[in-house]
Design a binder for these strands. Structure first.
Lengths: 196, 196
DNA sequence: AAGATATGTTAATAATTGTAAACATAATTG
DNA sequence: CAATTATGTTTACAATTATTAACATATCTT
């Protein structure tokens, strides 16, 4: 009863499953056996598509990077950089709620302690994300919408923190409240904190 | 060559070692063998002081709770609640830098996916922490120091986010920058975001 | 000092981990 | 249709996991 699928399909399937495992049970449950069980194959079949577990996690991060940056780009529609930031925050909290997509902060947090290679990749994703936020902030400063005394680099970290802590609390409360609802409040604090 | 120590000493020693393992290598390296190796005993000796690994992690969280609340209390010296918040933030970032004490956000983040019992304990610690911040904010509102339109509950989450993202970025940059240095900037954003 | 208790060691357990080799057959190519 | 290649299965392995039982001796209590 072997339903064979192309390796590209399997690879994506495996990565998707891992994102699901991480959100539902945690990274410690991301094992070759668990992956195989969930997609309905055997452990060893996994090795037809990846040469090692590290190889799998590596693709996972690439995958997260793509969806994350994609989400950023889609949120940047306005001419107003401040409005764009607001949209980005909303997008993160909205997706978090719908739970269709695992919040990247959860995955990156969970993978914080993998081997050095994985850590480097994660680090790069975070840097890329922060740089993007930073750029938006910088252009807002240029337009005089944001105080010139604020440091874009550090403000970007603070922005990331809004998402991170909200998702964390939300996760620990077993997804029992709607983060989107608190978007307005969070944004209010951050916005007041930076605007000119 | 058996150097025997009282169980209270061993228990604390074991917990301390775990905090160290988590910061230096990650939670996945918190194994009975690794603990035993580090404190210079055998695996089985550990079971003289704890009945299970879960039991160890449970005490670890209690321990984190104590040091965390202690740090909070020590930072609350002023009559001015806003100043107290500023001190708390500084304390977190300072300790993070000195690295003598593992930042609680790291440990709580790393343990995010333990079993349900551990999760509940962590959840309680976070709640307790947030409530404390919330109280400070509420009293600041009463004193007219902070806008009455801000929600203390949500502002507390935002406050937690400042610490969380800073420590995360700091951790991924292999502790290569001094978070204390960015304290002023972070505080500036948050403070402007809430003050009346 | 004698007896009791607490701590440590050695050896062993079953379960699970990631991974490999040998074999089998489906899907694709010629 | 034949041959090749890609995918899946079975079996196996060594390493590591948390934990227990049996035994040994240091420390504490009386």
């Amino acid at each position: 009863m072997q339903v064979r699928k192309h390796t590209e399909i399997r690879r994506q399937q495996i990565v998707d499953i891992i994102r699901h495992i991480i959100t539902s049970k945690g990274i410690e449950y991301v094992t070759i056996s668990e992956i195989a069980r969930r997609i309905g194959t055997t452990k060893t079949a996994i090795y037809r598509h990846f040469k090692s577990k590290q190889d799998i996690l590596s693709l996972l991060i690439d995958n997260i990077e793509v969806t994350l940056m994609d989400k950023l780009d889609k949120s940047i529609m306005s001419e107003d950089p401040v409005q764009n930031l607001k949209n980005i925050l909303l997008a993160h909290l909205t997706y978090a709620r719908e739970r269709r997509e695992t919040p990247f902060v959860i995955i990156l947090g969970a993978m914080q302690f993998s081997d050095i290679l994985i850590r480097r990749k994660i680090s790069r994703v975070i840097q890329k994300y922060l740089r993007k936020i930073e750029e938006i902030l910088s252009s807002a400063i240029k337009l005089g919408l944001v105080r010139s005394t604020i440091d874009p680099k550090i403000s970007a970290i603070a922005f990331l923190g809004l998402i991170q802590s909200t998702v964390t609390v939300w996760s620990y409360k077993n997804f029992a409240f709607i983060p989107q609802k608190i978007h307005a409040h969070l944004w209010n604090i951050f916005c007041q904190g930076i605007v000119a």
